[in-house]
Amino acid sequence: NKFNKEMRNAYWEIALLPNLNNQQKRAFIRSLYDDPSQSANLLAEAKKLNDAQA
């Protein structure tokens, strides 16, 4: 399933972002599970926040 693969990839990328705190990571990951079709958008948002907090 395409969404499962995208979701799994996004999950690990988000989990490993160095500048997000655990609460932020959990919120993004919860959103991934709520709507796997938004994986790419959620990952992009997480990366933006990660960069902003660098």
Score class of each variant (00 low, 15 high):
1 N>V: 08
1 N>I: 07
1 N>P: 09
1 N>T: 08
1 N>H: 04
1 N>C: 15
2 K>Q: 11
2 K>G: 13
2 K>L: 14
2 K>D: 15
3 F>V: 09
3 F>P: 15
3 F>C: 05
3 F>A: 05
4 N>Q: 05
4 N>C: 03
4 N>F: 09
4 N>K: 06
4 N>L: 08
4 N>T: 06
5 K>Y: 04
6 E>T: 05
7 M>R: 02
7 M>A: 10
7 M>E: 02
8 R>K: 05
8 R>A: 13
8 R>W: 08
8 R>F: 06
9 N>F: 06
9 N>P: 04
10 A>V: 10
10 A>W: 06
10 A>T: 12
10 A>H: 05
10 A>F: 14
10 A>M: 08
11 Y>K: 14
11 Y>V: 15
11 Y>S: 09
11 Y>G: 06
12 W>S: 10
12 W>C: 03
12 W>P: 00
13 E>Q: 03
13 E>K: 14
13 E>M: 13
14 I>G: 00
14 I>M: 05
14 I>L: 05
14 I>N: 00
14 I>V: 06
15 A>K: 15
15 A>D: 04
15 A>S: 14
15 A>L: 12
16 L>E: 07
16 L>M: 15
16 L>I: 09
16 L>R: 15
17 L>G: 00
17 L>Y: 06
17 L>N: 02
17 L>K: 02
17 L>R: 01
17 L>W: 03
18 P>L: 06
18 P>D: 11
18 P>M: 08
19 N>F: 14
19 N>G: 08
20 L>P: 00
20 L>C: 01
20 L>A: 00
20 L>E: 00
21 N>A: 07
22 N>R: 12
22 N>P: 09
23 Q>M: 08
23 Q>F: 06
23 Q>D: 12
23 Q>Y: 13
23 Q>V: 06
23 Q>C: 03
23 Q>W: 14
24 Q>R: 03
24 Q>M: 05
24 Q>N: 03
24 Q>Y: 02
24 Q>K: 02
24 Q>I: 05
24 Q>C: 01
25 K>I: 08
25 K>W: 02
26 R>I: 09
26 R>Q: 04
26 R>C: 04
26 R>F: 08
26 R>G: 10
27 A>H: 10
27 A>Y: 12
27 A>F: 13
27 A>N: 14
27 A>I: 08
27 A>P: 02
27 A>R: 09
28 F>K: 01
28 F>A: 04
28 F>N: 00
29 I>L: 06
29 I>G: 03
29 I>Q: 15
29 I>F: 13
30 R>N: 08
30 R>W: 05
30 R>L: 09
30 R>I: 08
31 S>R: 14
31 S>I: 07
31 S>G: 09
31 S>T: 05
31 S>F: 14
31 S>E: 14
31 S>Y: 10
31 S>H: 14
32 L>G: 01
33 Y>I: 06
33 Y>E: 04
33 Y>W: 04
33 Y>V: 12
34 D>H: 05
34 D>N: 09
35 D>G: 05
35 D>E: 12
35 D>K: 13
35 D>P: 01
36 P>I: 06
36 P>N: 05
36 P>E: 03
36 P>M: 05
36 P>Q: 06
36 P>C: 02
37 S>T: 08
37 S>D: 09
37 S>K: 12
38 Q>N: 12
38 Q>G: 06
39 S>M: 15
39 S>K: 14
39 S>D: 02
39 S>C: 02
40 A>K: 11
40 A>T: 09
40 A>I: 10
40 A>L: 11
41 N>D: 08
41 N>R: 08
41 N>M: 14
42 L>H: 07
42 L>F: 10
42 L>G: 01
42 L>S: 05
43 L>Q: 05
43 L>H: 02
43 L>C: 02
43 L>F: 04
44 A>F: 11
44 A>Y: 11
44 A>M: 11
44 A>E: 09
44 A>L: 15
44 A>K: 15
45 E>P: 00
45 E>D: 14
46 A>R: 00
46 A>C: 04
46 A>Q: 00
47 K>C: 02
47 K>T: 05
47 K>H: 11
47 K>L: 09
48 K>D: 07
48 K>N: 15
48 K>A: 10
49 L>Q: 07
49 L>W: 06
49 L>G: 01
49 L>H: 06
49 L>M: 13
50 N>T: 01
50 N>F: 01
50 N>G: 03
50 N>E: 02
50 N>P: 01
51 D>A: 14
52 A>I: 12
52 A>N: 09
52 A>E: 10
52 A>G: 10
53 Q>S: 14
53 Q>N: 09
53 Q>I: 12
54 A>K: 03
54 A>D: 13
54 A>M: 13
